[in-house]
């Protein structure tokens, strides 16, 4: 879970680093040209060349400022969607725990059910829990019976259905910010 989250936000973390480096280069160029313009003005007054250079410098300075504003917006967006994501995953976790409690799953069954929800193979679940595949199969059967579903697909869709039915503030925010991202990108 932690790994998936890192991968999900990794790109968002790298982007500002690149932007910051670009801004530093831009700032250097701006300082370079601005000081040259000042030197030119103090030496020879305002020639056409100097005025053109001054305009370019001004554009560079504006570029730095707008680049900075854009970078802040990008970082704020990333922070918002991160907060929304953790709120949504927290809410899903609560939902799952509530259902497991309601179905009166044993601790062992809860663990197996969680693996099942995450899409882990029966064989892999058995291996991770150090039990026989037959045991896990029996546990899964108990889980499905207690939940009143026919199989894994229905078990998963129970939670999806709940998430889609009631608009959760966290999920709503996440959906909105990813739409924003799509538009921006």
């Amino acid at each position: 879970m932690q790994h998936g989250r890192r991968a999900f936000f990794g790109a968002g973390d790298r982007q500002p680093v690149v932007l910051a480096a670009l801004l530093a280069v831009q700032a250097f160029a701006a300082v370079f040209f601005v000081s040259d313009v000042i030197a030119d003005f103090s030496l020879g007054g305002a020639g056409l060349h100097t005025i053109f250079e001054a305009a370019v410098s001004f554009a560079l300075v504006l570029g730095v400022i707008f680049g900075g504003l854009e970078m802040r917006r990008a970082m704020e967006r990333a922070r918002r969607s991160e907060a929304a994501f953790s709120a949504a995953s927290g809410a899903l976790g609560d939902l799952i725990q509530n259902y497991f409690h309601e179905w009166a799953l044993t601790p062992a069954e809860s663990e197996v059910a969680l693996f099942a929800l995450k899409g882990v193979d029966l064989g892999d679940i058995a291996e991770m829990r150090g039990s026989a595949p037959g045991t896990v199969r029996a546990q899964l059967a108990h889980i499905y019976a207690k939940a009143g579903v026919s199989g894994r697909a229905q078990l998963v869709s129970l939670f999806i259905e709940d998430l889609l039915a009631g608009p959760m503030p966290g999920l709503e925010g996440h959906a909105r910010s990813s739409r924003e991202r799509d538009r921006a990108g």
């Binding site: 700032a27 250097f28 300082v31 370079f32 900075g68």
Partner: peptide, 15 residues
């Protein structure tokens, strides 16, 4: 100096 100028601008418009 460029980095300082950038940081000072960031002090106005940054995070």
């Amino acid at each position: 100096f460029s980095l300082l100028a950038l940081r000072l601008v960031w002090g106005l418009i940054g995070t």
